[in-house]
Simulated assay, not measured.
Amino acid sequence: MSENTKDYNAQRDHVVFPERTNYDDYMVKMSSRINPKVSKKKSSCIMNLCDEVDNYPTEYITRVMKDHKYDNLFNDDDIVPFDISQRNQFDGEETLCSTMQHVYKPKKAMNTNKTERIIVNIEGRKQTLVFETCVENTKCQFSEMFPNDYQTECKQRYVVRRLWALNDEKQPAFDSFEVPSCCVCTYKKK
């Protein structure tokens, strides 16, 4: 029997005999299909939300989501970025904190129980998040105008969003994720 036939039979049956293949190598190979790693190509994570992962299981997710009854929950429209810093402002008003806007289609994230989950984000079933983050290590604008015994800081605020993700049994289910929402100016007495 050729080596390729042995590997094919091992993958097809999910029964591994010592003479067929190295079991540890096989399990590593199979688990990487369902448990992808964050991509090393570039930094693609923002606050535990990753949009680029190595070995993302697109084919597996497509197969398990094929006949899912909740198709109307997904949106495939491309979201056009807009200035969310203006969402609660009137003409001439500015925020006290510098922010960055993100339009993200996460493929992996940490849920509220601190467990990494694969997020369903494939063609036909997109989950897009629009949020803003604080520019790191910044004080509030005009902080010098606060009383001397106060210090200011821009702090990130979060909301909990429910997204489709693969659960422990590798089946799609709703899970809760902490997602950045806005940046606020805080102050406290020194």
Score class of each variant (00 low, 15 high):
N48L: 02
Y60M: 07
Q86L: 09
C97I: 00
D54L: 13
E93M: 03
K105R: 15
T58D: 11
N75K: 04
V38S: 05
I46A: 07
N72D: 01
R87A: 10
V103C: 02
L49D: 04
S39K: 09
K40E: 12
I34E: 12
N35Y: 14
K105E: 06
C97R: 00
R87D: 12
P36N: 08
K69F: 10
S44T: 14
I34H: 15
C45T: 14
S32M: 11
Q101E: 12
P81Y: 00
D71Q: 02
Q86P: 07
H68G: 04
K69L: 10
V80W: 01
D77A: 08
V38H: 12
S32D: 15
Q89E: 09
D51G: 11
M47D: 15
P57E: 01
K41L: 14
K105L: 06
C97L: 03
K69G: 09
S85F: 01
M100W: 06
S31F: 10
S98N: 11
M100Y: 08
K69M: 08
I84E: 06
N55S: 15
D91V: 04
R63L: 05
D51I: 10
S31Y: 09
Y70P: 04
S44A: 13
S39E: 12
E94N: 04
K42T: 11
T62L: 03
M100P: 01
G92L: 02
R87E: 15
M65R: 01
V80Q: 00
Y70L: 10
N72S: 05
G92M: 04
Q89S: 13
Y70D: 14
Q101R: 13
S32C: 08
M47G: 10
F90I: 08
N72W: 05
I61K: 02
S43Y: 11
N72T: 07
Y56V: 07
M30A: 10
E52P: 07
S43M: 12
V80L: 03
Y104D: 10
H102T: 05
L73E: 14
P36C: 02
L49W: 03
P36R: 03
V103L: 03
N75G: 01
V103P: 00
V103S: 02
S43D: 11
R33A: 14
E93K: 08
R87K: 14
K69V: 08
Q89V: 07
H68C: 02
D91T: 04
R33F: 09
Q89W: 06
I46W: 08
P57A: 04
I61R: 02
Q86C: 08
E52C: 12
Y104W: 12
D51T: 08
N35W: 06
Q86N: 12
D78K: 01
P36G: 09
V53T: 15
V53G: 10
Y104T: 11
T95A: 11
P81V: 03
